[in-house]
Computed example of a mutant assay.
Amino acid sequence: MSRLALTTVICFAASISTPAAATLPAPVKAMIDAAIASGNEQDVLAIVKIAKATNPDDLAEIDTLMADYNVKQAKKAEAAILKKQEAGLFENWEGQGELGGFRSTGNTNNMGITGSVKLVKDAVKWRMNFKARADYERNKGITTRDQLNATIEPNYKFDKRLYAYGLAQFERDRLQGFSARYTLSGGLGYELVKTGDIRLAIKAGPAIRITDFAEGDTKSSLAALVGVDFDWKISDHLKFSQDAGGTYASDAQGFTSAVAVFDSDNTTFTATSALDAKLIGSLSTRLSYTIEHETNPKVGRAKTDTLSRASLVYDF
């Protein structure tokens, strides 16, 4: 046998005995690519974990895909921070507009209309929140509910979880006995849980309240404000939220949609649960239920009111 023929045989035998490099199956790679395209980090990690467990010979290729994904995520995060830093006062605002109807029970048993607006500007170190809500109903030519609430709340972020807040709030509810009430508060907030799907935050601090009663007199009081905010993204199309809070004051009266007031004469509590379902694009439908309770209301008033709302919500 010639040398050339012998060399050819040896090379052929070596090629048979040496295994080819593993290649990630196309369906598995397509599954990982789809998870990455969805933008949901938890889905990506879950799919990659399964892919590694079922394809142990392809770990290097899977790790390469994840490395590329992590680099792109880091660049995206840097771009988002830069955009926040360069944004002007009227840029990077997000919000919601809500319009619908409600049914009340307790002091009134009627149907009414409800509307609200919510705006948020999230910067690197600062966050600005603004929200306003109005509920209105009439029965037999008589106004039975006329509530207005507006709140502005700036936050300063110490880190990813701890922040300081300031709060200025205006309320009007003549049927509860006051034509205007102003609340100023400041304190600390902390996000106990902060993931892609769940957020649980609490805040607390001292407060000052000035109330203009319908009879014409004015009253000021010192208080302590406590708030809780819970949001749960059940799926891409369904979200649950629970808002409640508390304010302790020695002589405070009345309440708003997310404030409870505790004192020796009267305790007031409010809690709102809401379920949002995506309809199409930026449009959602919202079902919410609010409980408003006073342990010692004014003479002639029921202790508990409820508001069942059904509305359309537009994100912008």
Rank of each mutant, 00 (worst) to 15 (best):
M1G: 15
T8N: 14
F12S: 15
A13V: 15
S15G: 15
I16L: 15
I16Y: 13
S17F: 15
T18A: 13
T23H: 05
L24V: 00
A26P: 13
K29E: 13
M31N: 15
A37H: 08
L45K: 11
A51L: 01
A53I: 07
A53C: 08
N55C: 00
N55T: 05
N55D: 03
D57P: 09
L59C: 05
A60C: 01
E61H: 05
A77K: 06
E78D: 09
A80V: 08
I81Q: 13
K84M: 05
G88E: 03
W93K: 03
G95E: 10
L99Y: 06
G101P: 08
F102R: 06
R103K: 14
T105Q: 10
N107C: 01
T108F: 06
T114P: 01
T114W: 04
G115M: 01
S116G: 11
S116H: 02
S116Q: 04
S116F: 01
K121H: 02
A123P: 05
A123Y: 08
K125Q: 15
M128W: 14
M128S: 14
Y136G: 06
E137P: 11
E137G: 15
T143H: 01
T144M: 04
R145D: 06
Q147F: 13
T151S: 11
I152L: 06
P154M: 01
K157S: 07
F158D: 03
D159T: 01
D159G: 02
R161H: 11
Y163C: 06
L167H: 03
A168Y: 07
Q169E: 10
D173A: 05
G177E: 03
F178H: 01
R181D: 02
Y182F: 07
T183I: 05
T183S: 05
G186Q: 07
L188T: 03
Y190D: 05
Y190H: 05
L192A: 08
K194E: 01
G196D: 10
D197S: 13
I198L: 12
K203F: 07
K203C: 07
A207T: 02
T211L: 02
D212Q: 10
G216D: 00
V226F: 12
V226G: 15
G227D: 09
G227N: 09
V228K: 09
V228H: 11
K233I: 12
D236I: 03
S241L: 03
G246F: 06
D251W: 01
T256M: 09
V259P: 10
A260M: 04
D263V: 04
D263T: 04
S264P: 11
T267L: 08
A277I: 06
K278R: 03
L279W: 00
I280E: 08
S282Q: 12
T285G: 11
E294A: 11
T295E: 02
N296T: 08
R309H: 09
S311P: 06
Y314C: 00
Y314P: 00
